[in-house]
Design a protein around this nucleic acid. Sequence first.
DNA 1: TGAAATGTTGGGGCG
DNA 2: ACGCCCCAACATTTC
Length: 464
Amino acid sequence: MTPVIHWFRRDLRLHDNLALAAAFQSGAPILPVFIFDPAILKSDWSGAPRLAFLLKALTSLDESLQAWGGKLLIRIGDPRQSLPRLIQTTGARGLYFNKDYSPFAQKRDQQVARLVGIPVSAFDDAILQPPGTVVKDNGLPYTMFTPFKRRWLSYDKPPITENYLVGGCFHLMDDMGHIPSLQELGYGPIETDIPEASEKKAIVLLENFVQKAIGTYAERRNVLAADRNQAEPGTSYLSPYLRFGLISPRQVYWAAHHTAKNALFISVETWVSELVWREFYMHILHFFPHVMGSSFQRKYDQLAWRYAPAELEAWKAGMTGYPVVDAAMRQLQAMGWMHNRARMIVASFLTKDLLIDWREGERHFMQWLIDGDPAANNGGWQWAAGTGTDAQPYFRIFNPQSQSEKFDPEGVYIKRWVPELRDVPIRYIHDPHRMPIPPHQYPPPIVDHALARERALTAYQFVK
DNA sequence: TGAAATGTTGGGGCG
DNA sequence: ACGCCCCAACATTTC
């Protein structure tokens, strides 16, 4: 029996996977494939932590497939060449995959569809409302979040699909390849602590969160120290799992929906809003591809960003002298993840206090975040820089000290990630340079916030 | 999903 | 008792 191919990309799960379910229903044996594209691996938008998470996810996926008598086929190469070759050797009669809405992926997928010469079935699986399904009455895409969200919420959402897989429905070959190591993919060893990456883990995180934490999400989501390692996490920590499709947005949405009756409605809605942000920015990238590399609001391409490599390096290393900024930047390298409130704080600091181009921050985040996604990351950075859709006004400049006092009042987050400050009394934890004898391992502030704020206002006002 | 500057109010100390 | 000042607390405006 000639097989059909299921091409795994950002849907590394067996449950609620639309393309995989359709491949199964075709009746043919399924050949599950993952392809490493060297063009992506070599890009400076890739990063070892995210790749390490991906490798764990693939290993777990392969184990799940083996439980059903299958195995994940691995190839390294341009899919435009790998897939036609694979189809030639196997005689596969269909190609199934779930859509990726980024401009780069869509172009590639169109080329693949032309080259394979067999029927291609692509599914809307990664998102509850695909681009084009949430538009204004005049047919144009939304560029503001709040009206987008209102419209988004008004539609019925697709249900979770059954897992139809049974033993023996997979196709095996002599040369299945193997899941490579980081080293084989050209990366050195890493110190980042990569979490367990499996469908099962994602479901445990989701269940735990909706049962124990969703009701207080609206208030606790801003607590910097309440991360996944705490008994009661303030956030779900599902972003890496959604990023690679270890869990579907439908599973997440319906889990929240079903608890809405038992939990504070405002908290559930706040949490679902984060799912809507994810889709909003996917739409934005789809309809406004120029945001990749330039400002959504074109006028801000004129902004006179500073060239300050030493300050950029201090920011990356967590050595700015602003404790909350440094804690966040070190958390990023240690965990491959950063609290969302912290992302806003460090993004404001880079773009406003240091007046360094948001694209530098965008790239750094892509190199370190295991949940790094082009659409969401770009949207977040342009929001912080004030150059994007629905952006905060340019004059909204975070004060790192008051943010720190508000969202890490006891300095727990700071002390966890900046060990030099562990002995600093609470009253000095947000600005240790004011101590009579400042901690000597810790640098003084690299900029004066009050002066930096004036400098940023001037630069932004010049554009306006 | 701000923060700083400026304006207003009201209680208390004091002559 | 009264006016004056100070200033914290809160509100509004501005960036």
